[in-house]
Computed example of a mutant assay.
Amino acid sequence: MSSWMAGGQADTWSNTPIGGYVRNRDKSSVTIQSWHTARRENNQPYVAPKRDDTLWDLTVVDEVHSAREETQLYDLLTRVESASECLYALTATPIQLNVGELYDLLRLVDLLESWDDREQFEEFFETRRVFEESLDEVGTGSQGSTLAEQTFLDSVRKELELSDDKEGKQLAQTCIETFAEMLHGHIDAYAGYDDRAQEVVDGPKSFD
């Protein structure tokens, strides 16, 4: 294992300190580098050169909570993601991010296609907040299913500050449907989430 501070200029990646090390080995290579060094603009091409094929089988980056869009570290992570077969972005630091910043980090580790849209991603979490408040208003099964659904829809519309007309109700319905599609996509893609989702459906806030 080695750590480098890339310096000078090289005509090809194989002539850089990292490239030369990898080129001269006849077995798998493991490299370790400080992201404080790697993120520097003149070092990024050495760590993650732009090429048609991937360079690294696996890249592990720690302290990713420090990455924000339009920072050198985030630029580095974007390049590394393209140059790697697999990227693990790690942090053990408790952080509070706004939803947009959370999206910026998660999109580096292969978000589902239905989730890989910043505006839709942010709307999902806003809709979840609205759902929680609207479900409290509906209650715990004191109404019939049809009436409860209508009450829920009206509450969602009000929380989203949509107009009390056909257009407003349709927008609220579309918001609910988009949320459901994203949620189902996530459940289908990851093992174990279907059981958790069923627990929620069968819980005390079910309409039935």
Rank of each mutant, 00 (worst) to 15 (best):
Leu147Ile: 12
Trp115Asn: 11
Glu122Asp: 13
Ala83Glu: 01
Gln96Met: 08
Glu101Phe: 07
Ser134Arg: 08
Gly141Leu: 03
Glu119Ala: 11
Tyr88Met: 11
Phe125Tyr: 10
Cys86Gly: 04
Asp110Ser: 13
Gln150Ile: 13
Gln150Trp: 10
Glu132His: 06
Glu113Leu: 05
Gln96Cys: 03
Gln120Met: 04
Glu122Thr: 12
Arg128Pro: 00
Tyr88Asn: 08
Gly139Met: 08
Leu102Gly: 09
Glu126Pro: 02
Thr91Gly: 03
Leu147His: 02
Phe125Gln: 06
Leu112Thr: 14
Leu90Gln: 02
Asp110Lys: 12
Glu126Gly: 10
Val99His: 13
Ser142Val: 13
Asp136Ser: 09
Glu149Tyr: 09
Glu122His: 10
Asp104Ser: 02
Asp117Pro: 09
Ala148Asp: 02
Asp136Val: 12
Glu149Trp: 07
Tyr88Pro: 01
Gln96Tyr: 08
Glu85Pro: 07
Glu122Leu: 11
Pro94Val: 14
Glu132Arg: 10
Glu126Ala: 14
Arg118Asp: 03
Ala83Tyr: 00
Asp117Gly: 04
Gly139Asn: 08
Glu126Val: 15
Cys86Gln: 10
Glu122Ser: 10
Trp115Thr: 04
Cys86Ala: 09
Ala89Trp: 01
Leu105Ala: 02
Ile95Pro: 00
Ala148Asn: 01
Val130Arg: 10
Ala148Pro: 06
Glu113Ile: 00
Leu135Arg: 12
Leu90Ala: 04
Glu122Met: 12
Phe125Cys: 10
Glu126Lys: 13
Arg107Trp: 00
Asp110His: 08
